[in-house]
Amino acid sequence: MRQLIELNVNGEVYPIDVEGRTRLLDALRDKCLLTGAKEGCSTGDCGACTVLLDSMPVTSCLVLAASAVGKQITTIEGVAKGEALHPVQRAFMDLGGLQCGICTPGMIMTSIALLEENPNATRDEIRYGLQGNLCRCTGYDKIVDAVQAAAHEMDGRRRGTPRVETGGNPAMAGPLQADTTGGRSPGAR
């Protein structure tokens, strides 16, 4: 049955009309035209459709759009600040944490939530946290490398001394440093 709902996605309100059966994934992709979240298995196993609901990662293929009303939804489109990529996005690029790229939006959303909860996650903890995100190219090592590098980078930012440990890509230093100085005073935690 059709109904008009409002979804709050990446800080913007999207008034959309959906059916009762419309899944959050379909609402995001087809109604909000945010196609970052990918449909993989449609059974909640692969994690390609992962988005954050009130900061918690969920598989949006198992959530009804109507159930997400009133929640803050964050998709991959909402994690960069303007042109400045999120450190996790940047690290995936710099360290080749992706091959075909289908799993990447989901991987990044789970990784962001993971580092939010556990900023000093070990490799094992990263692997544990990403158990619900499958990479069928099987490029897991570099994904874990990337999350770990992002953790270092974000830790550096919190301490006001960004440590760039991702291979010295010159593109990496610029926006991150600019963002640090613009965001918090040096030395603040």
Binding site: G47, M56, T59, V63, T110, L114, Q131
Partner: peptide, 9 residues
């Protein structure tokens, strides 16, 4: 149970 994403739901 399942994955982190599943346990949140």
């Amino acid at each position: 149970v399942g994955s982190w994403q599943i346990r949140n739901l």
